[in-house]
Write a protein that binds this DNA or RNA. Sequence first.
DNA 1: ACACTTTATGACAACGATGTCAGACGGTCT
DNA 2: AGACCGTCTGACATCGTTGTCATAAAGTGT
Lengths: 328, 328
Amino acid sequence: MKDVAREAGVGIKTVSRVVNGEGYVGEATAARVRAAVERLAYRRDVSAGSLRRADRRTLSIGLLLGDVSNPFDAQVHRGVEDAAGAAGFAVLSASLDEDPERERELVPTMGSYQVDGLIVMPAGPDPTALQREMDAGMPVVLVDRGVEGLETDSVVVDNQSGARLATEHLISYGHRHIAFMGDRQFLPTARMRLEGYREACWAARAATHIIPDLSNEYLAETATRAMLQASPAPTAIFAAQNLVTIGVVRALRSLGLEHEIAVVGFDDISLGDLVSPAITVIAQDPHLIGKMAAERLLARIGGDTGPVEQIIVPTSFLVRGSGEIPPA
Amino acid sequence: MKDVAREAGVGIKTVSRVVNGEGYVGEATAARVRAAVERLAYRRDVSAGSLRRADRRTLSIGLLLGDVSNPFDAQVHRGVEDAAGAAGFAVLSASLDEDPERERELVPTMGSYQVDGLIVMPAGPDPTALQREMDAGMPVVLVDRGVEGLETDSVVVDNQSGARLATEHLISYGHRHIAFMGDRQFLPTARMRLEGYREACWAARAATHIIPDLSNEYLAETATRAMLQASPAPTAIFAAQNLVTIGVVRALRSLGLEHEIAVVGFDDISLGDLVSPAITVIAQDPHLIGKMAAERLLARIGGDTGPVEQIIVPTSFLVRGSGEIPPA
DNA sequence: ACACTTTATGACAACGATGTCAGACGGTCT
DNA sequence: AGACCGTCTGACATCGTTGTCATAAAGTGT
């Protein structure tokens, strides 16, 4: 900027004014400055600017997801990016892999990059890292799940009633022995979905059969195969997470049981409508979740001091075939 | 930092030395500083530090992808993140949507955030924005495709020979009328895949049937349906991109032709092994592509001034059924 | 002609950190 | 004792930018 000022024969503050469009600069001077900027291929340094500016804004937000390559998380990511990008904010992202250790580590790291706010899909139940950041004045919005003891905005879906709906759907087709296969129980979403399943089973006086802690596709497949050896084997399965659903479908296929045993999944899966039978699911709208979280965060960054909000994004029920198989 | 210095009763430079582990600090002093850091919940400001430091490093890299929510791109993203994270670098990412306009805009934006290097899946054929960045000393690594006229490292797959292999595979099963359905032809990868298809057809003296510029699933589905009305209709399809493959499969399914017409896809698709018939594909390893790109970039950031490298990541051929259907 | 406002401009300090340098202290060698 | 070295420490300038303020010129109202 000093160089540009010299090149244009003006003071550095005048260059600053032109670059930031502050006005109070003569048209002729401004033109000379713009020409110099062009000639020297000058580009403003956002971080140096934020250093001196009163609000310390860096026009960037941090995004901590479970795994950027999980289709659900990737859609959330895109939603955040769309909303943030429209407001001129850049997105710094990282994957936590549901590891509380990484959360403890990466939350302060994001802080040290001076992001203006943080969107987090929390990996653990421990609020201290995030609380510390919030105490330092950092706006935080949680997505997908909350953290007990942390008073801040969140964007979630109603996992419990979605799971209840899915289970009731199976019950309405005559099933009374429905297995629940879900993700790790320290995840609040997994617990809520289990709760919804339990509610529906109780109401129908159906037995419960719970297989938790399936953290990936492979474990889900193995567990499904093992479970179906038992007798009496369940006649239907509620698969409470996207990767679990894939594992279940894969196991049923390998046993040739995909047209005998009913399946309803939570979260849509790519090509779920093309396999045979097509997979009935409770679908979320992850792009919308990300977009709303980013909008909430941007409002907080902009100074919104209203009460803490919990935004619940609706789910939709996609009936496709696998969930409408009656018991044998 | 000034506050920490006052709290600990030392000079700010001493605090800096402790925080950065520079040594030459007495143990007692260091302990007092660490205690003060803890008490005041102090965190170093990375960007302010980089301002004065000679190398201007911000320990962050920029990543410009087609679309962070495309499964292929998301895997690349994760590969980059893994390699960058291990070296202590943060990743600033954005989606270009194959729009050269956005590329012109976001490349300098990344520059103004002072990233130490840039990994780009280029959206357009125009090298100027990237060239300008490189002239300013920014290391750049291209992924998935190159840019003509830009002398820089790149990590790609051999699209041409992959496509040739796929086509030859169909020919070996007796097909002589194979349709090529591909993405927009301004994308180098799309052109290379078409070239590979052409080579194989020529060698076998088979007719070509080319349907380009299918930029999404829906267009691919519609085009497939239209094409199959023609007579004589092709007996096999080479679907040259992941979303195109999905569209093709969807169209065949809706016409009930999925067991009549052979399909080989380029890029693996999720659940491609579960649909019936399972989809034969040329699979890439996007995680590896991202990882290698990041490693190359980190080497350049670290001062590697060796000659420009083009890294070619091998593809693999997954034979699953859809590509082994003989012509009627 | 006078006071007052508006527009245009640059000098300078400051943001939070690090590089440079100089100085103080204690120990070792001649 | 004096020269010399290694360790430990802080004052100060500096990185690129913006906030504050002073100043000057031109315009406006009386």
